[in-house]
Simulated scan of single mutants.
Amino acid sequence: MSTTVEVMSETAPAAPRVVGRRGPWFAAIWLFFLIDPVRAGFQADDRVRGLSGVATTVVFAGVYLLLWWRMRARAQAFGDPVGETPGAGSALLLTLAGLGVLMMVLLGEPGVACLVYVAVAAVMVMPVRWAAPTVIAIAVLAVLLGLLPGWEFEFGVAFGVVAASVAVFGIRTIINRNAQLVTAHQRNAELAVDNERSRFARDLHDILGHSLTVITIKAELARRLIDVDPERTRAELADLERLSRDALADVRRAVEGYRDLTLPGELARARTALSAAEIEATLPNSTEDVPSELRELFAWTVREGVTNVIRHSGARHCEVVLGPGRAEVRDDGAGPGTPSVRGSGLAGLQERAAALGARLVTTKLDPGWSLAVVVE
């Protein structure tokens, strides 16, 4: 009887895997207890009957190994745990039971050893509500067979039936739980990938959607003005070039490193974060007014400002305002304290602003709080 449990990796594929070559040999070790029936067959006075019993025992062992192999492989597939859907396993179990009966008929009392293997097979194949009464019935049968003329009381076999069945039931439970855990892990991983894909698509839409709309409108305007107002057309084309370069830079940052800061991406994440915190948000629909060299700084401003609003302010409303030389986050909450109190996040933002010739301004409103980065 096999008591081998193989630990299944959380990263195992959903498709069935090939059973390891050493697995069946561990199951074959327990066939040692069939040596007595084989020896009794060779020592039988009726040579034909004895050899028939030996052949039956060998076939019995082969069917047992086949059943074990099949159930173990099915458990490794994660989609059909042991004992849940008998299927072809029931046919193998009935075959094993029939061969067991034939062993006892041909070999007599030594053939009773087959009952332990039949009980274990029943636990492997049947649902618990059927396996338990089946094991009890097999144990009772082992005791009743001792009442036959010339047969001894088989208490040891009855005890072996119960003990082996309980042990294999524990193993089966572990295998099923592992299979369920791995399946749940795989489903969670699939959901996480789907959520990340949806979020990436949403953020990419936020990054490109308005920019492409503005680019399209400006391109149409330039086409109409090309013969009417060449100077205005040049200005629109220059603006069109800047917007397209900014959009391309945002997309590259999003693709190369999804967590890299982009101003449209931070606005998209701010909208999601404020909504999750049940804070009403008023956010700009575009970023085309922001010069390219200030976009990263303003993205940090939005991130730091919105983070402070969510963590410290207790606000009900938050507004982000963007302009060519200013980025501001306002709220109607209590704020982090006085304007002179600044954490490491604000200190880092002040350093970034100073590097670009801008300054950080924090202001207590009535009610609320304002965090702004202003270009001198």
Rank of each mutant, 00 (worst) to 15 (best):
G305T: 08
T301H: 05
V290L: 06
S292M: 13
A268N: 02
A281L: 02
E293P: 08
N285F: 11
T301P: 03
V302A: 02
E266A: 12
A277E: 02
D289R: 09
R271F: 06
E293M: 00
P291H: 08
S275Y: 03
R269T: 14
R303F: 15
P291S: 05
R303E: 11
F298I: 09
S275A: 11
N308H: 11
T282K: 03
T282S: 09
R271L: 10
E288I: 15
E293S: 04
R271Y: 06
I279G: 08
V290N: 01
V306K: 01
A270M: 08
G265Q: 01
A270V: 06
T282D: 12
A273M: 07
A299N: 02
P284N: 12
L283G: 04
A276M: 08
E296A: 15
A273P: 01
D289Y: 13
L297F: 10
L283E: 07
L297A: 15
G265M: 04
T301A: 13
G305V: 08
G305P: 05
E266T: 13
P291A: 02
R303Y: 14
A281R: 01
L274M: 07
L294N: 06
L283W: 03
L294Q: 04
A277C: 10
L297Y: 06
R271M: 10
P264D: 11
T287N: 01
N308Y: 06
R295F: 11
E280R: 14
A273D: 08
E293K: 00
P291E: 13
R295K: 14
A268F: 09
L274I: 08
E278I: 00
P284R: 12
G305S: 09
S286Y: 12
V302F: 05
V309C: 12
R269L: 13
P284D: 07
D289G: 03
A270F: 07
E278M: 02
D289H: 10
E266F: 15
N285Y: 12
L267Q: 02
A299F: 04
A281N: 03
V309M: 10
T307G: 12
L283P: 01
R303I: 09
T272Q: 11
W300C: 10
E293N: 01
G305F: 05
N285M: 02
L274V: 09
A276K: 12
V290P: 05
L267Y: 02
D289C: 07
E293F: 00
G305R: 02
R303W: 13
G305A: 09
D289V: 12
G265C: 05
E280I: 08
A299T: 04
T287Q: 01
G305Q: 06
I279E: 02
